[in-house]
Structures are given as C-alpha cells and as structure tokens.
Amino acid sequence: MTNSEPDHNRPPAAWIPTQHPHSEGTPKCRKNISVLGLGLMGTALAKSLLAAGHQVTVWNRTPAKADPLVAEGAKQAATPAAAVAASELVIACLLDSRSVTATLEGAELRGRVIANLTTSRPVEAREIAALVTERGGDHLAGGIMAIPQMIATPGALILYSGSKAAYDRYEQALSAMARPPSTRARTPRWRRCSTSRC
C-alpha cells in the first residue's frame, strides 16, 4: 500500500526524505532483511532489496504470493515470527496498523529494527512504536510517496521518522527502495518516538 501524504496537522516526527536517483548494484554491506506483507507495494520493496544484493526473507498470509520472489532468490518464512527472527531489519508493509500489531504478536523483537511502511495515522504509528520499543526493538515509521512501479526509481520517495540510530545503521539498505540525494543542504532534526509525542 502507499501513503498519499503525511498528516500535516500532527506529523509523527521530524520527517527525513529519502529519494532514489539510481541503482548502484551490490551494496558494500549486504544485510539480512525481512519483508512482512507481499501486496503490490510489499513485493516491489522486496524486489528492490533483492536487486540491491541483500538477503531477503519474506512472509505473506497467502504463501503463494512469495513464489515469484523465491524464484528471484528470496527465502520464505512459514510464520511472521520466523521472518522476524531471520533478520535484524524487518520491513512491514501490511493492510493497516491492526494488521501490523497482529502480525508482530508472538515475534521476538529484541534487537530488531521494525520499519513500518504501512499506511497509518500518527496515533497508530505511536502505538506501534511503543509496542516495538517496549519489547526491546527499535522502530522507524515510513511514509511511501510512490506507487509500486516507482520503487527504486528516481521518483521514489520515502519519509522516515523514529529512531535516528536505527535509520543511520540501515540507511544504505533502506536506500535500495528510495535513496537519499547525494548532497543535503541541511541536516534533518530527529526526535525519538514516544507514547506521548512523536
């Protein structure tokens, strides 16, 4: 799914744009990345990560949707918990926030970074951030400003908020989906999400 635009009345954090000008092939540091949800957008995200040379584990409620990605080199997890266990960076692109909460139930989140790219309202993003951090993980909320066909192209734009440390750690991997410009005029200001304010 895509996010048409962030909620300007109460944004979940100071947003940082990430824009993808071109692909550079195999990354300098290959990562294990899991993708939860293989709708049109989730599939596009997983494909871009595979194309960038990362090891991708995928999970979807309908297992057959993973077949094309498995043919391209992805690993398929039988359960969400297995997908989360496979990678320290987990990207969720599901139907809605309730789906994210249900999918993460029972998964061990300690030491994981959950990048939630599911369309969410700010209050829902805060609730998921609290759930993840209470269970020992780090959280990023992302707003996708693109249709699936635009992922990993110059027009792709993803806005992130949440843990700056988590973003900095995985910036190169996240850039496979939408890459930041090579030159930034200003350094973005970050605030860690909390249950009271993002």
Rank of each mutant, 00 (worst) to 15 (best):
A52T: 11
R112D: 09
L131I: 10
T57R: 01
T101V: 12
V56C: 01
R169I: 09
S196T: 05
K75L: 13
A46V: 06
L36M: 11
A152G: 03
L159N: 00
D67K: 08
Q19V: 01
A115Y: 01
A66L: 07
W190N: 06
T183A: 02
T183C: 01
S99G: 11
D96A: 03
K75G: 08
G136Y: 10
R121W: 12
A46W: 05
M41G: 06
A44R: 00
N60T: 08
A115S: 01
A86D: 08
A129P: 02
E171A: 13
R184H: 08
E88H: 05
P17M: 10
T57Q: 05
Y167K: 00
C29S: 15
L140D: 00
E127D: 15
Q172H: 13
A85K: 08
D67W: 06
A81E: 13
G155P: 02
A92W: 07
T195Y: 11
P180Q: 03
M1Y: 05
G155E: 14
S161A: 15
K65N: 01
T62S: 13
R197H: 10
L94D: 06
T133R: 14
A173S: 04
T118D: 10
L117G: 00
W59P: 00
G39D: 06
A102Q: 04
T79K: 00
W190P: 00
L49H: 09
P181R: 13
E108N: 09
L89Y: 03
D96Q: 02
P68Y: 03
A141S: 13
N60H: 06
R192F: 09
A141C: 11
A51Q: 14
V123L: 13
A152M: 03
G162W: 02
Q172P: 03
I33H: 04
R98H: 15
S196V: 10
P188S: 02
L157F: 08
L36P: 02
L131D: 05
G111M: 10
C29A: 15
A85S: 13
P180E: 06
I114R: 00
V113K: 00
H139Y: 15
R169S: 10
A52M: 11
R186T: 10
L69N: 04
S34W: 10
E24K: 11
W59E: 10
T183L: 01
G162P: 05
H139E: 11
A52N: 10
I33M: 08
N32G: 10
P148R: 04
N9V: 12
K31Q: 15
W190S: 04
A86N: 08
C29G: 12
T119C: 06
A51Y: 05
D7L: 14
K28I: 11
A166H: 07
A77Q: 10
P21G: 09
L38C: 01
A125W: 01
L36H: 04
T195E: 15
V70R: 03
L45F: 05
M1E: 11
S4P: 00
M1K: 08
